[in-house]
Amino acid sequence: MSQQERHDDAESHEILNKYQALGAKVISIRDDDSEGVEIVQQVMDSKEELFARVDRMNEFKADVELTYATASKIVNIAEYERRGRSNIDVDGLYDKLKQMIASQSAVTTMKKLGKVASAQSKRPPVIDFMVGPISLTRRVIERRRPGERLTFDENQQQSTRQLQSDEVANQNLQDQQTVTIRQIYTVLRQQVENSGGPVHYYEFVINPHDFAQTNENMFFLSFLVRDGKVKLDVDDDDLPVLSIAEPAERDEGSQAKRRKVSQTVISMDYDSYLKLIDLYDIKDTIIPNRDYSDLAF
């Protein structure tokens, strides 16, 4: 088209309106529309006829935008056909995601979605995804100059001595507890042999002179019951009694059968402690008093 044949503004406005109408028609085509390809072809034919009248820059721009829109629509239709017409309902998927997030924490939901997405992706997991962000701090090593004396931090020496002292105290406490449990077992065995039968639980554990050691006796005795060395039963009056557990019976050529051990919880407050002393008329303790003054704390 020569310079003398350039159309006026009114005709240019008409051309732009037609390009806009064709673009709206392309956008309205659904990917699952069986006639979508034919409609796109009709738009392309109309575009070719309209392009013959184009001679202004804004009209060329409108033609390029329409070309891009039709090409994108063809790609979407082809992708839909490749998926076997299995269109995804985005609104339905969004509603299900909202229900999932409402039923559990958002963090848990996002972790599940991330695992599903990563399994479908060909992108290798990055370091942050595998082990979290790595933050390494280089240790600064101070080098002594030749001839410089090595000095020690007094606070560090005191901390080391305190740690060693605490370890010794803990070891002494554990050793003392082991000795106490063995002593209680020995005393109970003697009581059972002397009485010729079970020993009443409260008469055995209660120290009428020391409420704290009474609770300690109950605590230490629980280890013997747990290990199956002592049996805790009830007599005809439904009162707890203690006896020494017999060794597990053995079958010829087989290993020893494990005894089924069951436990119960017995608590005692100070009022119950005083009432039990009066009820059983306990004058002295069967388990000897313990002296903790030699322990190093």
Rank of each mutant, 00 (worst) to 15 (best):
A10N: 09
V261H: 03
A24C: 05
D294P: 12
L150E: 09
I29Q: 05
V116Q: 09
V199E: 02
A248E: 13
Q41V: 01
S243L: 04
K283T: 10
I266V: 08
R85Y: 06
Y68G: 12
S195Y: 03
R144G: 01
T214E: 02
V54M: 09
E49L: 07
G114C: 02
V225Q: 15
Q255A: 09
T67E: 06
E35Y: 06
D55L: 04
P133K: 14
V107F: 10
S72G: 06
S2Y: 01
L66D: 02
T160R: 15
K275W: 00
F60T: 11
Q190R: 09
L279N: 13
D32R: 13
I74C: 05
S159K: 15
L136A: 13
Q191D: 08
V187L: 04
Q177M: 06
R143K: 15
L276N: 11
K47N: 08
R85W: 00
E203C: 04
Q42W: 08
A71W: 00
V205T: 09
V140Q: 12
V90H: 01
D233Y: 03
I74Y: 03
Q177A: 12
Q171G: 03
H7K: 12
S121Y: 09
N172V: 01
Y292S: 03
D175M: 08
K231H: 02
R143P: 03
F129D: 14
K111W: 00
P124D: 07
H209N: 15
D175Y: 10
R145Q: 14
D63E: 10
E81A: 08
I15Y: 02
V241M: 11
L50C: 09
V199S: 06
F60Y: 13
A10E: 12
V168D: 07
V261T: 11
T109H: 13
E148V: 10
I266S: 02
T151G: 02
M100S: 09
D294V: 04
A296W: 00
T178S: 11
Y185I: 03
K111C: 06
S118A: 14
E193S: 15
L16D: 00
